[in-house]
């Protein structure tokens, strides 16, 4: 049966963590583990979710979880999956890596695991910068977003298309999602869990601290990014692309950007330009 808010596991597997109030990334991890269950092994590289989840002697995960070297998320996942299989254990191996850990530093390990067709679920929680070390620009920071390494004009580069990269590498399944639309996110995780081979889910996860939004605006902003067409919900399956929905209110794009502090460097002309990047 499809997982929904009605039959989601009532247990919390990511609880008591030290993420900032209103953190979108922590919601992405919490909900994914509720779908994948107690036996799922969570694999996290350096980044906010590992920093806020492992605070010895306090562990915020009640399933198995471990931290990998920053560049090695997918290759450590490969090893864990092989070990579990050797021992006859049946459990999902799920990675939770940030945008920096996925699109920049962990890209080679990710590509290797896709190439091997390993049976893994890799979730990139995308807060669009290296948040844990103080908001530096990553390959997934969008055009115009101010970070501590793009402090004047905001990023002059556009966001890498990770979904296309993963698909081009030959993943079994790739999908984008948003913490603003959890029903869709849950459905995609469930779908990934039922498939053999390498599965990739890229979930946009607003970060109040780095985005300059209020702690209670995380969900609204994550929904709006989809509604205005900045973040497209799509799936890649059986070699085919599927667009999940058309933007419902593209006219609100500028409003969506100006309510986020990180886009304060954009003047009117540049704001218009974001429509084309």
């Amino acid at each position: 049966m499809a997982v929904s808010v009605k039959n989601l596991d009532s247990r919390e597997f990511f609880f008591g963590h030290k993420a900032c109030a209103g953190c979108g990334g922590s919601l992405a991890v919490r909900i994914a583990l509720k779908v994948l269950g107690a036996r799922a092994v969570a694999v996290l590289p350096a980044g906010c979710m590992s920093a806020v989840g492992f605070n010895f002697p306090q562990l915020a995960f009640s399933n198995n979880a471990l931290i990998t070297p920053f560049a090695a998320t997918a290759s450590v996942m490969t090893g864990i999956e092989a070990g579990l299989r050797r021992r006859g254990e049946i459990a999902h191996v799920v990675g939770f890596a940030g945008d920096g850990g996925t699109a920049d530093i962990g890209l080679q390990a990710l590509s290797g695991a896709i190439d091997r067709g390993d049976n893994l679920i890799y979730i990139c929680y995308d807060n669009e910068a290296y948040m844990n070390t103080g908001i530096q620009k990553s390959g997934l920071t969008p055009f115009g977003a101010r970070t501590t390494t793009t402090p004047i004009t905001g990023s002059v580069r556009r966001k890498k298309d990770m979904l296309a990269i993963v698909a081009a590498n030959g993943a079994e399944y790739a999908a984008s999602a948003s913490v603003g639309y959890l029903d869709d996110y849950v459905t995609k995780i469930e779908k990934a869990a039922a498939k053999p081979g390498f599965k990739y889910i890229h979930v946009i996860a607003p970060c109040p601290t780095g985005w300059g939004i209020k702690t209670n605006e995380t969900i609204e902003i994550a929904r709006e990014a989809v509604d205005v067409g900045l973040w497209r919900l799509r799936e890649y399956e059986n070699g085919q692309w599927l667009e999940n929905c058309a933007p419902s209110r593209p006219e609100d794009l500028v409003k969506h950007l100006t309510r986020q502090g990180r886009f304060s460097a954009l003047d009117t002309d540049k704001l218009e330009e974001t429509k084309n990047v």
Binding site: F15, G16, A38, Q58, L59, S62, N64, A65, L66
Partner: peptide
Amino acid sequence: RLKPLPDTIPDCTAFEAGYL
């Protein structure tokens, strides 16, 4: 609240006391 799940998880890294 977080509860230890000793019967249901593989015996790897989970902090066994499982308390916050």
